[in-house]
């Protein structure tokens, strides 16, 4: 009876999840994806989708902390960072490097360069390299909230979309509480 209950619990849900498919939600150009803890109906970190073809992965997205966008083989991750004390982009870049390395498939390749978003916020950006994936990373920090972006894919596909992805990363906004 116990074994049966375990089997049902641990197989029915994954099977149902699989049966529902990838669960992607197509995003129209101009869609704003917001993440972070909602306050007064607003989530504090946003990114704007610049062209058609991006899909929000509903299975891998938890809007309180991260959003995962897919376009063919390219994965665009936006995450919110809630610091426990003051935060700056340099510190955040160091932390992101450790988080990316912990995934085991890629690492941050170079020293970061400054980047300015469309809304005038300054952050840091740099390359991601892995065995079969390349990409770009960016971090943005305010005193009380931060955001990290990692986008990666196969070298050829990413190369073709790099300019658009970098532009998308520059649409990130962080609204400090």
């Amino acid at each position: 009876m116990v074994a049966l209950a375990l089997l049902v619990l641990c197989s029915v849900l994954p099977l149902l999840n699989r049966a529902l498919g990838s669960g992607g939600r197509r995003l129209a150009p101009g869609t704003i994806v917001s993440i972070g803890t909602e306050q007064n109906g607003v989530r504090p970190v946003t990114v704007t989708v610049l062209r058609a073809g991006w899909v929000l992965s509903e299975a891998d997205t938890s809007l309180t902390s991260n959003a995962k966008l897919l376009s063919d083989d390219i994965v665009f991750n936006l995450s919110v960072v809630v610091p426990l004390s003051s935060l700056d982009a340099q510190k955040l870049w160091g932390g992101l490097g450790r988080i990316v390395a912990a995934g085991g498939r890629a690492r941050l390749a170079t020293a970061p360069a400054p980047v300015v978003t469309a809304h005038g916020m300054t952050g840091l950006t740099g390359r991601i390299i892995g065995r079969d994936r390349v990409g770009v990373a960016a971090v943005f920090a305010t005193d009380t909230l931060g955001a990290t972006v990692t986008a990666a894919g196969p070298p050829r596909a990413f190369g073709a979309a790099a300019a658009e992805i970098e532009a998308m990363a520059r649409t990130v906004t962080v609204m400090a509480p």
Binding site: P14, N17, G23, R25, L56, E58, A59, T61, S62, L63
Partner: peptide
């Protein structure tokens, strides 16, 4: 761990990521 991940993925796909986050 996998059971919760699967359940929340199902909720996200059926009721939306906003509902799932809440």
């Amino acid at each position: 761990l996998p059971a919760n991940a699967a359940f929340q993925a199902v909720l996200s796909k059926t009721a939306g990521p906003g509902f799932n986050a809440e």
